[in-house]
Design a protein around this nucleic acid. Structure first.
Lengths: 238, 238
DNA sequence: AGATCATTTGCGGGTTCCCGCAAGAGGACT
DNA sequence: AGTCCTCTTGCGGGAACCCGCAAATGATCT
């Protein structure tokens, strides 16, 4: 079996390779890539069907790479191996994984044994494996209290790249007032009002972005990709 | 010589330990800590005088730890070994390093040889070593074009945690209009206006925070520590 | 002191934002 | 159909923000 490792940190890459050959002796060949772009190419030319990939990389992150790889060969098994359990990544993955593809999401803090187990389960058995920590976050994100639904999340991203209400309304096809309603519920769910103490006057817009970042609802990468999305939309609009 | 390694990633820690014993055979004992808080304690109880430390850590980051360590024993040599070359970190270090302490700032992407060289230079020879990449950023930050002076940087942090103009004015002891002048120059230097293309209407405040994050002028950690600073100030004000 | 240049500050007005209120609009259930 | 509920939308007003203009203040140099 051919396996592709996409990881920009050399230490982590070699650790991963060690664990891989231990856990999955069926492996015959191991390919390496330093970022998502290389990873896509490698996967295409070498006809790879099993991948272990970091999420956070320079040129093109793991989620974007996964999207194109799955678009070409949906049966590819991908184990994401990441430092963070940000909600932004979770949403990214949830929105790209095809119906019946095998994938896994493991944190780098996981023990070697858990890693080896996940490697076998995903790459070989085509199961779905999600790390405990990550699962916990998924839960919290889908609990009614602080859950952002998709339309709120969209507006959050638009806010985060600095759009004003009117533009958001146009882009998302809602009325101005509806956008503002979304913002109100965002302010509420993100805890923009100083939770307990004296409510001193804040700039809610900026505060919302601040809270979203600090609570790891979004991360800087999602700012960058939201910006790209927006520019694409802008070019398309007449 | 006793050396303390403060690093929360196990792979990196062991790689570092290897390089350390190779580069500095004078080392007799190596201590480990997983975060800044532990690092401070360890340094105190073991009377450590040479430290290699990551910057980004859970409990207490490297800069804060360095501050207290240097406050206790300014002659301590510290080599910062970090993933990022964020301006936020640079400012942090520049503002904490005592007059004649030896320190270094190296990126984790540096080669093993550069790491070994820096280890000897800083821990043993008490020189000051700053990575090429980092130096480049330092340069750019102090070039007239995009340089934020300290007072602009302060206002940026206040903006970033969501304060409104009036509060910033009070906190920093300037008039309302002066705060707004600072904001204007921030908008300018951060490139809030869509650099070249059609200037479409943006929320400048949010956009400024966005740009500051994307250009690595500040990072999420600095948001968190700015928030703590603000709360301390808030408690003190009558 | 006097001249020059940068920074600070107040004023005023045009926008954008925040949000209460109340009138639609679209289900879902009886 | 009728009732109940939730979500959307328009209106309107007060607050915050952006920023041009010009006077006041300060620092530096001759």
């Amino acid at each position: 079996m051919k396996v592709l490792i996409v990881e920009d940190d050399q230490f982590h890459a070699s650790y991963l390779e060690d664990a891989l050959v231990e856990a999955v002796p069926e492996v015959t060949q191991i390919f390496h890539a330093m970022n998502g772009e290389e990873g896509e190419k490698e996967a295409r030319t070498a006809q790879i069907e099993a991948i272990v990939m970091d999420l956070q990389m320079e040129k093109r992150n793991g989620i974007e790479a996964a999207r194109t790889i799955w678009a070409e060969r949906p049966q590819t098994r991908i184990l994401f191996w990441s430092n963070y359990a940000d909600e932004a990544y979770l949403r990214g993955i949830a929105s790209t994984v095809p119906e019946d593809s095998a994938y896994g999401y493991l944190l780098k803090t996981a023990s070697r044994d858990r890693l080896k187990l996940a490697l076998r389960a995903v790459l070989l058995e085509e199961q779905i494996v999600v790390d405990r920590e990550v699962r916990r976050l998924q839960k919290r994100a889908s609990s009614p209290r602080n859950a952002l639904d998709d339309s709120e999340y969209e507006v959050l991203l638009d806010l985060a790249i600095g759009l004003q209400d009117k533009l958001i309304a146009e882009r998302r096809g809602m009325s101005l007032r509806t956008v503002q309603n979304r913002l109100l519920s965002l302010y509420d769910k993100l805890g923009v009002e100083g939770d307990a103490d004296t409510t001193l006057p804040l700039n809610k817009r900026v505060r919302a972005l601040n809270r979203a970042l600090v609570t790891r609802t979004i991360n800087i990468e999602s700012l960058e990709s939201a910006q790209r999305d927006f520019e694409r939309w802008l070019a398309r609009r007449h």
